[in-house]
Design a binder for these strands. Structure first.
Length: 448
RNA sequence: GUGGCCGUAGCUCAAUCGGUUAGAGCACCGGAUUGUGGUUCCGGGGGUUGCGGGUUCAAUUCCCGUCGGUCACCCCA
C-alpha cells in the first residue's frame, strides 16, 4: 500500500481540484462585487497569537510545535487573530470602513468527522470601523449571495440570526443574573439537540427561577420580531434592540435577500467575543453542519490589537459547502479543464510543423495538446489520434491531412457539424506569434 | 480524548459452512473494427485481502492488537 495523505488531509486530484477551484473562484467573484479587497498572512504563526485569545487548552486542538529556533509556533487554525494584528498595526492609515477578505487554508488537530477535516479552505470576510446595522446587513447579504451564486435558493438554505444585545436584554428583563448568562447560552445552543428535561435541569443548576427557565426554554419558538415585541414589548431595554433588528431585516429585504432571514434566539455561536448580531447559514433539510457563521465582535480588536474599532465578519469553509453542493447536484457541470485543440498529424506532417502550429496557437491563448511521442504522432491512423483527442476531452481536433493545411474538426459532444469542412492555412504561422490567419472558424468552435 | 460501525485492484463490489492459483464491471495501456470518428470486439498490466499476531491441516472469512476510514460525543475558529 502506497503512502496516503495524513489523516484529515486531502489529495486534490484534477477532478477534486476543479471543484475546489470552482468554490474559491466563486467566493472571490462575489466578494469582489461588494468591493472587498483580498489580503493574506502567514500560514504559520506564533502560538501565543492563539493562546492569548482562547487560553492554553486550545493548544491540544492546534498543529503546534517548536521550530528549529525554539519558537513555539502553530499552523493557523483561524484567520481572525492575524487579521486583527494586520488591521491594528495600520489602523490609523486604513480608510474606514475596512472591507477585506481572505481565503486561507486553515488547520486544526482534531479527529475528523463529517464536514470537518484537519485542513480546509475558509473564506473570511470582515468589515472594520462601522457600528451601524447597515454594515451587518451588508455582511449577511454577501454570505447569502455567495450561496445563490452556487445555484442554491431559498429551498436549499436559510440564515438563522440572533443578536447578543437583544438576548442579553431579554435575560435581564427576566431578572436572570448575569453570572448565569454563559450557562444559558450553552443551553440555548443545544436547545434543539438536547432533551428538554436536561436543558431545564441545567438552567435550574445555573440558578434560574422556574419562570425564567420556562421562558428561556420557550425562546426557540420566537421567529419574528413581532412575536418578541408582543411578549417583551413592555421592556424599553428590549425594544431598542428589537427596533434595530427590524431595521436590519428591512435592509436585507431591500438588498434582495430578506426571504432567507429567520430570527432564531438559539443561535449562540461558540465564540465568547461576539457582541451583536450573529448568524449561521444552514441547509434547509438540516442534513449538514452550518455552512457559514459570523457576526459582530466590537471588542475583539481592542483585546487583541489595542485599537478600539467596531468589527464584524464571517467564515465559510469549503468542506460543508462542497458536501451540500454535491448533494444538491450543483457540481455536475464542474468539469476538469481540457485542451482546446488537439493536433493530429498525418504521416506526411513534419514534427516541426506540429510544434510550430502549437506554439503559434498557444501565443493566441489557445490551449494545445498533441501526442508527445514521435511514433504516435506519425505512426497511428488518423482515427486513432482523433480518438485520443476525444478521450482527452479536447474541444477541437486540428487534422493535418496535407502540409500547411489543418482541418477543423469539432469534437464537443453533440454539437452540429458544419456543412463545409473548415480548413486553416497554417503555412505562414510562426512560433510564439499570433497567427495571421483568421482564427475565427476555430474560435467559433471554442466559444470565443 | 471516549464510543459504534467498516477496511478485498485507482473506483464500485463479489468470493458457498473456514477449503484449489482471490474474480467482475468501470477506469488505464495495447490492438482490431468503425474511416464526420466517444460505438463494438480482442488482449494486457494492476492485489503480501490495511498491518501484526493468534486459533486451524487450511484464514479474505474466526479471535486479539494496531493503523486507517466513517459516524456520534466533547469542542468549535
Amino acid at each position: 500500500m502506497s503512502p496516503k495523505a495524513l489523516p484529515g488531509f486531502r489529495d486534490f486530484y484534477p477532478a477534486e481540484f476543479a471543484i475546489r477551484a470552482h468554490i474559491l473562484d466563486t467566493w472571490r467573484r462575489i466578494v469582489r462585487r461588494y468591493a472587498f479587497m483580498e489580503y493574506d498572512g502567514p500560514p504559520l504563526e506564533p502560538l501565543e497569537l492563539y493562546t492569548q485569545k482562547s487560553g492554553d487548552e486550545i493548544v491540544g486542538q492546534l498543529y503546534a510545535f517548536d521550530d528549529k529556533g525554539g519558537r513555539s509556533v502553530a499552523m493557523r487554525p483561524e484567520m481572525t487573530p492575524t487579521f486583527a494584528r494586520m488591521v491594528a498595526s495600520r489602523a490609523q492609515a486604513l480608510r474606514k470602513p475596512v472591507r477585506w477578505f481572505a481565503v486561507p487554508q486553515l488547520f486544526r488537530y482534531e479527529r475528523q468527522q463529517k464536514g470537518r477535516l484537519r485542513e480546509h479552505f475558509q473564506l473570511n470576510v470582515d468589515i472594520v470601523g462601522e457600528s451601524d446595522v447597515l454594515a451587518d446587513a451588508e455582511l449577511l447579504s454577501i454570505a447569502i449571495e455567495i450561496c445563490r451564486a452556487f445555484g442554491l435558493d431559498r429551498s436549499d438554505f436559510y440564515a438563522r440570526v440572533s443578536d447578543r444585545r437583544l438576548l442579553n436584554a431579554l435575560l435581564a428583563s427576566l431578572e436572570i443574573d448575569a453570572d448565569a448568562w454563559p450557562a444559558v447560552y450553552a443551553v440555548l445552543d443545544k436547545l434543539e439537540r438536547q432533551p428538554r428535561e436536561i436543558s431545564a435541569e441545567k438552567l435550574a443548576t445555573a440558578g434560574l427561577s422556574a419562570q425564567a427557565a420556562d421562558a428561556v426554554l420557550g425562546f426557540g419558538a420566537f421567529d419574528t420580531v413581532d412575536a418578541l415585541r408582543e411578549r417583551f414589548g413592555g421592556s424599553p431595554d428590549v425594544v431598542v434592540h428589537l427596533d434595530r433588528f427590524a431595521q436590519y431585516a428591512q435592509h436585507l429585504t431591500a438588498l434582495g435577500v430578506g426571504e432567507f432571514l429567520r430570527l432564531d434566539l438559539t443561535i449562540v455561536r461558540g465564540l465568547a467575543y461576539y457582541t451583536g448580531i450573529v448568524f449561521e447559514l444552514f441547509d434547509a433539510q438540516g442534513e449538514f453542519r452550518a455552512i457559514c457563521g459570523g457576526g459582530r465582535y466590537d471588542n475583539l480588536l481592542q483585546s487583541l490589537g489595542g485599537v478600539d474599532l467596531p468589527a464584524l465578519g464571517f467564515g465559510m469553509g469549503d468542506v460543508v459547502l462542497g458536501e451540500l453542493l454535491a448533494a444538491r447536484g450543483k457540481l455536475s457541470a464542474v468539469g476538469t479543464p481540457a485542451a482546446d485543440v488537439w493536433l493530429v498529424a498525418s504521416e506526411h506532417t513534419p514534427v516541426a510543423d506540429i510544434l510550430r502550429v502549437a506554439s503559434s496557437l498557444r501565443a493566441a491563448d489557445v490551449s494545445v495538446e498533441y501526442a508527445l511521442n514521435a511514433d504516435k504522432l506519425h505512426g497511428r491512423k488518423t482515427t486513432a489520434s482523433i480518438k485520443d483527442a476525444q478521450k482527452a476531452g479536447a474541444r477541437v481536433a486540428l487534422v493535418f491531412r496535407e502540409a500547411g493545411q489543418a482541418e477543423v474538426l469539432p469534437l464537443a459532444g453533440d454539437a452540429p457539424l458544419p456543412a463545409d469542412r473548415t480548413v486553416l492555412d497554417t503555412s505562414d504561422w510562426s512560433p510564439t506569434s499570433v497567427p495571421h490567419t483568421d482564427l475565427s472558424p476555430l474560435f467559433q468552435h471554442l466559444g470565443r
